[in-house]
Design a protein around this nucleic acid. Sequence first.
DNA 1: TAAATATTTTAGATTTGTCTAAAAATATTT
DNA 2: AAATATTTTTAGACAAATCTAAAATATTTA
Lengths: 221, 221
Amino acid sequence: MLNYSTSEENYIKAIFHLQRQDNTVTTNELANELKTKPASVTDMMKKLKIKKLLHYEPYQGFRLSIEGYKVALGIVRRHRLWEYFLAEKLKFTWDEVHEVAEDLEHVSNKKLIDKLDEFLGFPRVDPHGDPIPDAHGKIEISKKICLTDLPLNKVAVVSGVSNQSSEILELLEHKKINIGIKLEVKKRFEFDHSIEVRIGRQPAFTISKELAENIFVKYGS
Amino acid sequence: MLNYSTSEENYIKAIFHLQRQDNTVTTNELANELKTKPASVTDMMKKLKIKKLLHYEPYQGFRLSIEGYKVALGIVRRHRLWEYFLAEKLKFTWDEVHEVAEDLEHVSNKKLIDKLDEFLGFPRVDPHGDPIPDAHGKIEISKKICLTDLPLNKVAVVSGVSNQSSEILELLEHKKINIGIKLEVKKRFEFDHSIEVRIGRQPAFTISKELAENIFVKYGS
DNA sequence: TAAATATTTTAGATTTGTCTAAAAATATTT
DNA sequence: AAATATTTTTAGACAAATCTAAAATATTTA
Ligand SMILES: [Mn+2]
Ligand SMILES: [Mn+2]
Ligand SMILES: [Mn+2]
Ligand SMILES: [Mn+2]
């Protein structure tokens, strides 16, 4: 596997994240995501196309190639392992890890990352509940259900949060909702779309529509 | 403290190491150390002078300014903490850590480094026996004595090794000489300048002049 | 001390990644 | 189907870091 510049890696990872939603990514979307200008995106897309990391025809948007997808998984693996390290070992909070991992992810020494993985005990998910690709690029694609869509009285595990701000963290900590916790939805209110939730045998409590929209769960352990 | 580019940091750190020996550093010395060309060094020296990180007049060589020295200590702190992490936590060997730390040292997030320091238990020396500057830039300047100069029958502690190759590591591991181990010199032979060494109450053994020249010790614990 | 040699700096080019402004292509309205 | 608006690309410029070749300066040698 070749080595790519920090800038190339940031573009590749951003495309990886954006193309999950739609099928292809547009110049403006990517420029917006990376806080850069459309002209810069076009320049980089030409370069990544030459390196065969993506499919791109002028004005048609772009997608990662098989090779580009593999490279992206490597970057995501490094990013999430470092996030796990920061949260678990260095006691960073949940909302602080992303920014630091954004730099650490670009140190691409295979042995470093595989030993870090081992040191951490081969974690499956990062502090935001997102799956960590293994050394071979395998990634668990568990389908996440938004809390707004979870059927009533079905126990599910909180597996991720889509918003990573310190504001949502404050609220989640106050409500004692962490990744991995089991909960069920007891009731939905039509008026404000608020949701009544219960964790284990504790008394049920209410969370807002806004919060519920950002919490994802999955079935099973 | 401002932020500097990876390239600027590599130059600053190299000057820091070179100026310990002599008083001022020359263009060729630095170009050689960084495996770059003299013209590139001159360009960077002009830039670092403008940033007030060093004293430099054309043709006169250069030294770090007080400010440049502080910046260098920060880089060295990061480098050596990562080296300690790699050796202690990830079980890298001694001769592998430098290369990886060379990249990790450029992730300059104050909180990351201070938390890493805490996680590691505030280590005083890196895996090569070199002192780690603390969060305020304080560094222990213990005077190292080369094993060739240690008086006979004086117990001293192995505190560093000047050569960092895997070849010297192989030999040191075979002879069971590690950083922190206590030893004394029992005899010196005029013929080949080999040295007879004893660790604790174990039987004495001989090491070559070449090896002794690369081992440094200090008195006390 | 003058010539030869070595070191250092300058001049000019190159690569990478970015930007602004203008042109071209595409999409949306009327 | 034009006209209008939006998106994307191109053209040209710029900063950072590097290089080669030539010029300037310093050091050594005879
Ligand atoms: Mn990044
Ligand atoms: Mn994450
Ligand atoms: Mn470095
Ligand atoms: Mn070291």
